[in-house]
């Protein structure tokens, strides 16, 4: 009896602790959103969303940075997802036993922990100078793609590994080739997991400032990027610039831009969850 009571008390205690930690995490997020909202909500307007930067805080808008962020992230995804997923398929389905594959795997795990500024310096040398992309959307997206590739590869591998081997074996038993098995059986089952990894990776990329500043993304660009070769800026750089201004009115602009960035991030995540649920229902 006594022992049971103690077990129950411990159980309750642990539950409370877990709740407390959850509240702490959600509470700090809520506090952040609340302060930012109170600082910047007044600045949110159609003019702010569609305007261009200005030295006058009240005239300044963020369309250039919003369009830049979206363009860069879409291009990053377009580069990182096919390469990342293909690499993961190779490592997980084809090359698991070879020494070179294991060396590659080891390196990818390490690359995931490299500070982002290092990728920026690599991007400056490789994409901006050697490959002569200049300070373009393509150079920025290529740098961010490098940055998120390890995350995409690692999460895709996890997703592929989670596919029950019975599915592969039944496919082979029916005479399918390795490629047919991967494409028609393994990938569809792994897709929800892959999508989750991709969205986490892109969510990281959209908040990155340091690598883009070091490749020479600009701060004042009074037009939205119109091609892969166009100069660009992104929301975090614009926010950083406004925060470091002496005039208080720019702090409100920064807060409003943070709200827009949060909304963009939430939209991306919501889209990913929707896609994931959709394919989960259909295929498993």
């Amino acid at each position: 009896m006594n022992a049971t009571a103690r077990r129950r008390a411990l159980d309750l205690l642990f539950q409370l602790l877990a709740m407390l930690i959850l509240c702490l995490a959600l509470g700090s997020l809520a506090a952040l959103v609340a302060t930012v909202w109170s600082d910047g909500a007044d600045r949110l307007s159609w003019d702010f969303l569609t305007g261009f930067p200005s030295r006058r805080a009240e005239d300044a808008g963020i369309w250039h940075a919003l369009a830049g962020s979206m363009f860069v992230i879409l291009t990053t995804g377009g580069l990182a997802v096919p390469i990342g997923v293909a690499s993961a398929i190779y490592l997980e389905e084809y090359g698991t036993r070879s020494l070179s594959a294991r060396i590659i795997e080891f390196n990818i795990t390490n690359l995931a922990a490299v500070p982002s500024i290092i990728y920026g310096l690599l991007g400056l040398w490789l994409f901006v100078r050697v490959m002569a992309m200049g300070r373009s959307v393509l150079a920025g997206a290529s740098t961010l793609a490098l940055l998120v590739l390890p995350v995409v590869i690692l999460s895709t591998r996890e997703a592929l590994r989670a596919v029950p081997s019975s599915i592969r074996e039944s496919s082979y038993a029916l005479g399918a080739t390795k490629w047919q098995t991967v494409w028609h059986q393994v990938l569809p089952v792994a897709l929800p997991g892959i999508l989750t990894g991709v969205i986490l990776a892109l969510s990281r990329a959209i908040g990155e400032t340091a690598p883009l500043i070091s490749i020479g993304a600009l701060t004042f660009v009074a037009f939205a990027p119109d091609s892969l070769w166009s100069p660009f800026t992104v929301l975090p750089i614009q926010i950083f610039n406004w925060v470091s201004r002496p005039q208080l009115a720019f702090q409100a602009n920064a807060a409003a831009a943070i709200l827009v960035l949060l909304a963009l991030l939430l939209t991306m995540n919501a889209a990913a969850i929707w896609l994931r649920d959709r394919y989960q229902k259909k295929l498993v």
């Binding site: 200005s54 030295r55 300070r135 993304a217 701060t219 004042f220 009074a222 037009f223």
Partner: peptide, 17 residues
């Protein structure tokens, strides 16, 4: 910014930090 307003047919200069 002022140059961009005064010269609508030239792309507004870009400034980096």
């Amino acid at each position: 910014e002022e140059f961009g307003k005064a010269n609508p047919n030239v792309r507004t200069p870009t400034v980096g930090i």
